[in-house]
Design a protein around this nucleic acid. Structure first.
Lengths: 303, 303
DNA sequence: TCCATGGATTAGTTTTCCTGATCCAATAAT
DNA sequence: ATTATTGGATCAGGAAAACTAATCCATGGA
């Protein structure tokens, strides 16, 4: 036997649930007649009466009572999954590490929301594991380039802007560094724990073997280390883009403006599943990132 | 959100299951174009791609992979229940006690099947409990009238023909009963266990206080008791209708033809749930019973 | 190079479905 | 008792959905 007309099943289900055709008609936005017709159609198809027609209203027959719960559950299953998928599809989920998020992405996000009001963007400010990216429910992630990810066939990686490091401190400390980089030994170094290698990278790049880059204070992320630097707590290894605001305002200054270097990771990158890369929402966000925030970031870096 | 067009869901489900539109089209008896269209419709409705379109064939997207199993299960649930109900509806299930079945109903059932080839009749030859009738899967039952059933609102009872009892024996025993009913004391009485009261009923009705109705042999049903009587094993309390064949053939004779009586139960009856009483199959069987087998049975009884 | 495959597309038609009006029977209200 | 209301059935006509058939397209294999 072939599955009967689906619309007839739906009409019956609604009628059975409401114990009447009028309410069912309202639910399905049709007239009583339409429900009556569909129910009869289904009854003809099955060769069984599903409703007893009473003077006032209807009552399910045995067959109707057997059919209704199954249909209700089946329709509900479909409904739930369809809604879930549509809701997922309407959302653009982005994950971005804390400092990058709070200092770069978040301040510009209102502009994106204004430009694309139809896209419901959900930002998660956190790190994520490499393995968890596909499994986790994110459409896009932002992070330092990761060679392991880049090698995966199903993952697309788009470099956004370079990471460029230079020491920065409060203006009050500037005199104590006039003697040159060696004077850094006299000041506290401010570290961010997830990337403690930054001072080492910079010192190696400029051949400062004497500098003990393990000294100083440790913060959970660059944001806090930077804020400590603003208070005069020491010298932070600043990311020129992420600390742009303090540098622009003069809250922080670069004691050695010519001495900035890149890192092994090289650049911040946008990463996402290849499958979703051309999704309209993903594409919109990607294009907006490149045209606005990334262009602005690159403009802050030495050529 | 409203449930998307059901036909689109079905088209997608088939396409996903077959991993291609052509096979889906065959399954649903439509063209490729129709499937293509419906799938696109669903994708537009959800705002998500469900298939990756490759050069050759299609592959499910993440969203598609999430949707398919749910739809498949939901459709299968519906399908199963609908088939179950349609199959149940196509069948007419009748339950009839053993002797009545084998001696009266079954021999005439071929005529019913010939007259109504579209009705698939399933006869269960057994007793059934009163309480179990509605719960058990029978459309109609035949039994002796039962006051308890008759009182239930949801059960309809239709008397079929009277039960009428008279002693019967093989012709060879007839001489030993010429003296009259008192001579029964010299012969073995044959009982059927489920209705052992028959001899008592008859003896009481005709004032035969001396007759010990507990003597004799016991059989599980009247059919066997009757066959024993044909072999000359004794005298059976015959139901005039159920033993009609033996009486007509002369295998059994009535030693006291004028001495027949009814029983407290009175009559055989057709019983069924009121709800199903006007179902076409039930009505057909009912009408056929009254016009044929019942009329024939009543014709055998004294007026 | 040419064919076969598998899907996309589109115009036009068929089928389905719905509306809106009317009917009906019985109960509740007057 | 009469009237209004309720809840469903029915039907003709028209809107909407779905399908067909033909064509197109890109590619991979003979």
């Amino acid at each position: 036997m072939r599955l009967p007309p689906l619309n007839a099943l739906r009409a019956f289900e609604a009628a059975a649930r409401h114990q009447g055709f009028i309410l069912a008609a309202e639910e399905l936005c049709v007239t009583r007649g339409a429900i009556s017709r569909q129910v009869k159609l289904l009854e003809d198809h099955l060769g069984v009466a599903l409703f007893h027609r009473h003077v006032r209203g209807v009552a399910l027959t045995t067959a109707g009572r057997q059919l209704q719960p199954v249909l209700s559950e089946a329709f509900q299953m479909m409904m739930r999954q369809v809604e879930q998928i549509a809701a997922d599809a309407a959302e653009l989920r982005v994950i971005c590490p804390p400092t990058l998020s709070i200092r770069w992405l978040l301040p510009q996000l209102e502009a994106f929301r204004a430009a694309y009001p139809e896209i419901s963007l959900r930002l998660t400010t956190d790190f994520y594991s490499n393995s968890g990216f596909a499994a986790a429910d994110f459409d896009l992630g932002i992070s330092l380039q990761n060679s392991r990810l880049a090698r995966a066939e199903t993952i697309t990686v788009l470099p956004l802007f370079d990471m460029r490091l230079a020491p920065a401190c409060a203006p009050a400390l500037l005199p104590r560094l006039e003697a040159g980089p060696e004077a850094l030994a006299q000041l506290r170094l401010l570290h961010e724990s997830p990337r403690q290698s930054d001072w080492a990278t910079w010192a190696r790049h400029f051949g400062l073997r004497q500098l003990d880059v393990t000294r100083g204070e440790i913060f959970p992320n660059l944001d806090m280390a930077t804020r400590a630097a603003v208070m005069g707590a020491g010298v932070v290894m600043a990311d020129l883009v992420l600390c742009a605001e303090e540098l622009a305002r003069g809250d922080l200054v670069l004691p050695f403006p010519q001495m900035s270097c890149g890192t092994p990771e090289g650049a911040y990158a946008l990463i996402g599943e290849a499958e979703k890369w051309h999704d309209p929402k993903v594409a919109a966000f990607r294009d907006w990132l490149l045209a606005g925030p990334c262009a602005a970031a690159q403009a802050l870096l030495p050529a």
